[in-house]
């Protein structure tokens, strides 16, 4: 892997910073986020690795992982992060790039009846809708 100045401060890196309001350089890779994450077992890239990839400027790798969709925004990581990094905000920024710019949608209108049939509360449906769709 070749690391260059361009890859470190590419436009995507800046865009993620702008959407999330977070500076990934604050992270010193202690791994508290991963250790605290209740859904880390289902992730292909661990939360602290997401931040590491972003520090290295490897944005595409994290845009293509399932981690950003598994993250449940439970804020356990943010509450315990010794550096005060808003990792849920970074995850949201990554989702936002896919949803806003690349026409991505994980939740489609056709999914709705299935969910409704389960008796899922509105709160869950709206949350899912907000997280998975533009």
């Amino acid at each position: 892997m070749k690391i260059t100045t361009q890859s470190l401060c590419g436009t995507m890196v800046k865009e993620i910073a702008a959407i999330s309001g977070e500076n990934v350089a604050k992270c010193y890779q202690c791994g508290k986020c991963t250790a605290a994450c209740p859904v880390n077992m289902a992730m292909d890239i661990l939360p602290h690795q997401v931040l590491r990839f972003l520090q290295l400027g490897l944005v595409e790798a994290v845009l293509n992982c399932n981690t950003i969709w598994i993250c449940a925004s439970c804020f356990t990581c943010a509450g315990r992060c010794p550096r005060g990094v808003d990792l849920p905000g970074v995850m949201e920024a990554l989702r936002a790039i896919l949803l806003r710019k690349r026409g991505f949608s994980r939740f489609k209108a056709g999914d709705m009846p299935r969910v409704l049939n389960k008796g899922m509360p509105e709160q869950g449906i709206v949350s899912g809708f907000r997280k998975y769709t533009k």
Binding site: Q29, C30, G31, K32, T34, A35, A36, C37, N40, L46, H48, Q49, T76, R80
Partner: peptide, 24 residues
């Protein structure tokens, strides 16, 4: 190399959940 997320007391043991960031 990594942190501990939480210690769960479990019977007479303590279940320590952490991360080894080097192995991922």
């Amino acid at each position: 190399k990594g942190s501990v997320g939480k210690v769960f007391p479990d019977g007479d043991k303590l279940l320590v959940k952490g991360v080894d960031s080097l192995s991922g």
